[in-house]
Amino acid sequence: MSGNLLELNQLSKRFPVRKGLFQRVVGHVNAVDGVDLTIGRGEIVGLAGESGSGKSTVARMIVGLLTPTEGTVTFDGEDVSKQLGTLAFKRRVQMVFQNPGSSLNPRRSVADALKVPLRVHGVPSSTWAERIRSLLEMVELPATFAQKYPHELSGGQKQRVAIARALAVQPELIVLDEPTSALDVSVQAKVIELLLRIRDELDLAYLFISHDLSLMRNFSDRVGVMYLGKLAEMGTSDDLFLRPQHPYTQGLLASIPVVSEAEEALKPTQRHLKGEIPSPANVPSGCRFRTRCPHAFDACREVAPTFHELSATHASRCHLHDPALAGSAEPTKA
């Protein structure tokens, strides 16, 4: 397993729930609950799921914006769980946020925005001008943009600046949190093309967080689907989109609006998911998906399912893959 750039081992994040005058802790919210994930060098791994599934919390722990409650993070073969927020680690892992309008300081020119990481990480100031020029070239913006301010840029251009800023310290992994969801599709296509080209040129790895499953299908090498803080299914893009096994993944895929008959044929035919994701403060017993699952049977209420390896690359956390349990139960019909 030493070939992996990043390894998450049973990573968890618990937020305390406080109440009353003295802000006493009255309970906990398990936002992320024992996530195992690996990202290889040059690999794009996607995390999908509804709001509240914990995908952004995973991203925030990796870049050090949140401290994990439990579990370890290994980077390039070395346990970095204790150094997640440190400068040395942040040089190797960078993040691009969803809304470039609010992640760029309106009073800083593009050049100033790009200088911040260079200064913080101690890059000699004599090389800054040259670095900024090459960074802008990397994200396909003209060198004259260095003097512009965010309000002079379109949404796509702002996101390119945010990507250039992440690249400034030559990281090995970039966490992309919904990098294109604020953009129009015609702009999104260009930004995605840029990200793919940079990945190839610099041999970068991406952790890609998105709720746009069609985009995930095209952009990611491997995809994990999260539900209430746990991975429900993990596999290559082909595994997940051509052979989805977990009822939640099937439900998600069935609800995507698509633009052609060919795509319609790829959508699972299962019934649509009912209801909404429960609160992570009050996780259902047994399988946490059972309250919305069209196949739920008795065992789902009592026993939490484990990951079942379906192939070398594909695993799903569902009792239906366990012949001993699934054989005995008739799926309940609603």
Partner: peptide, 16 residues
């Protein structure tokens, strides 16, 4: 515009 929409069959083009 239609060509820009990511497709579920993985045949996206990124021309924009």
């Amino acid at each position: 515009l239609l060509a820009c929409v990511p497709k579920l069959d993985g045949t996206a083009t990124y021309e924009g």
